[in-house]
Simulated scan of single mutants.
Amino acid sequence: MKTSDALRLLSAFTSAQWGMVTSRQAKGTGVDGVTLHRLEKAGHLDRVRHGVYAATIAVVTEAREEQAAWLMLNAAEPAWKRAPLDPDGGVLSHESAARLHGLGELVNDRIVLTTPRRRTSRDPDVRFRIAGLLEDDVTTIDGLPVTTVLRTIRDLMEQRIDGSHIATMIQEAVEAHLLRLDVLAEHIGPYALVYGVRRPGDGEALLEHLLAGIGTSVARLAHRPIPTRR
Rank of each mutant, 00 (worst) to 15 (best):
M1R: 02
M1H: 07
K2E: 08
S4N: 09
L9Y: 08
T14N: 01
Q17H: 07
G19D: 00
T22P: 08
T22N: 05
S23G: 09
A26G: 04
A26Y: 03
G28Y: 02
T35A: 10
H50L: 15
H50P: 09
G51W: 03
Y53M: 13
A55G: 10
T61C: 15
E62I: 14
E62Y: 15
R64Y: 10
E65G: 14
A69M: 08
W70L: 02
A76P: 08
P78I: 07
A79K: 02
W80L: 00
W80F: 06
W80I: 00
R82G: 04
A83G: 09
L85W: 10
H94T: 03
S96R: 00
L103I: 03
L103F: 01
G104L: 01
L106G: 02
D109S: 13
R110L: 12
R110H: 11
L113A: 06
R122K: 14
V126Y: 04
D136L: 11
V138Q: 06
T140I: 10
L144I: 12
V149T: 11
V149C: 07
M157W: 11
M157K: 09
Q159E: 12
D162V: 11
M169H: 03
Q171G: 07
A173Q: 10
R180W: 12
V183W: 15
L184P: 01
L184W: 05
A185L: 15
G189L: 04
A192Y: 04
G203D: 03
G203K: 05
E204A: 10
E204T: 12
E204M: 13
L211P: 00
A212S: 14
G213I: 04
I214M: 04
G215A: 04
A222V: 14
H223W: 14
R229F: 09
